[in-house]
Computed example of a mutant assay.
Amino acid sequence: MKNLWNPWREEHVLGREEKYDYCIFEPPTEGSDSKEHLLLYRDSHAVILLNRFPYANGHLLIAPARHIADITELSSQENETIMELLQVSSSILRGELHCDGLNIGCNLGEVAGAGIASHLHFHIVPRWEGDHNFMTVVNEIRTIPVHIAHTFDQLVPAFRELFQIRHPQR
């Protein structure tokens, strides 16, 4: 029998995860990325974070930088930026993690499944052939084979390069 270790999920599973006094999509840090906050990319229009409680390795969250709750509140520039970042992030995930597919979605409102309904965000979940087995169905447990800190280190260079391409003057 093999052990599946996902120690960073323990606090979440037990309902004891750290409560933040700020919106996770507005981390109180300077710069375009932060490992502490799992922030891979930030500019004046949008942010990209690794999901602290992922469905799969490399699960990203893309949100407008502005605190809004609904897709209908996006400005044209925010909408354009987020769609572009969804495209580029998909390419980065395929290139860096070699995933076989991606789930991309957005839950609007608590009743629709939004865990943080007050700040609009999109999910990109990498998928691999056979990635979820009986564990999810039988025990409602997901297995994630790579530590989130390693995934951050693997992805952040590509997002730093993206930031430099989009903002060459910085």
Rank of each mutant, 00 (worst) to 15 (best):
T29A: 11
E84H: 13
I68H: 11
I92S: 02
L38E: 02
P64I: 14
E78R: 10
S44Q: 15
R42Q: 07
L86W: 11
H59K: 05
E96K: 10
E73S: 09
S44A: 13
T29K: 02
E30L: 13
T81F: 10
C99G: 00
H45D: 15
H45V: 13
S91R: 12
G95I: 03
P28R: 07
K35I: 11
L40C: 07
E80S: 12
E73Q: 13
L49F: 01
L74I: 14
R94I: 04
A69D: 05
G101T: 01
S34K: 09
V88E: 04
D33I: 13
F25V: 12
S32E: 02
I92K: 00
L39N: 04
L93N: 12
D100R: 05
K35Q: 11
A56P: 07
C99D: 04
L86P: 06
T72C: 12
L102W: 01
F25P: 08
E96V: 08
C99M: 10
N51M: 04
H98E: 06
L97A: 04
H67Q: 12
A46H: 08
H45E: 15
V47M: 06
L86I: 09
T72Y: 13
G95E: 09
L97T: 03
I68W: 09
Y41R: 02
P54K: 01
L60W: 12
H37V: 00
R66H: 06
P28G: 00
Q87A: 12
I24R: 12
G58D: 05
H98C: 01
I92G: 03
H37W: 07
H98V: 11
H59V: 08
I48Y: 02
H98R: 04
L49D: 09
L97W: 04
K35R: 05
Q77F: 14
E73Y: 10
Q77A: 15
T72N: 13
E36W: 11
S76D: 15
N57A: 15
Q77C: 14
I48R: 01
S34R: 10
T72W: 07
C99I: 03
E30H: 10
L74D: 03
T81P: 06
L60K: 02
P27R: 04
H45G: 14
Y55L: 03
S76V: 15
R52N: 08
L40R: 03
T72R: 14
D70P: 00
L39D: 10
E36M: 07
L49Q: 08
K35G: 13
L50M: 05
S91A: 14
T81E: 15
V88W: 10
A56D: 07
G95R: 11
N57K: 13
N103V: 02
E78F: 00
H67N: 03
D100T: 12
L97C: 06
H59W: 08
A56C: 09
P27L: 00
I92E: 11
A63T: 07
E26C: 14
L85V: 02
L61M: 08
L86G: 11
P27K: 06
D100K: 11
S91I: 15
Q77N: 15
N57Y: 12
L50I: 07
E36I: 14
S75C: 09
N103G: 07
I68V: 01
N103F: 00
E80Q: 15
E80R: 13
N79K: 15
F53E: 01
E80K: 14
H45I: 13
L39E: 08
L38V: 04
A69F: 04
E30V: 09
P27M: 08
S89A: 05
S89P: 07
P28D: 03
P54W: 06
P27V: 04
I92W: 06
I71W: 09
E84D: 15
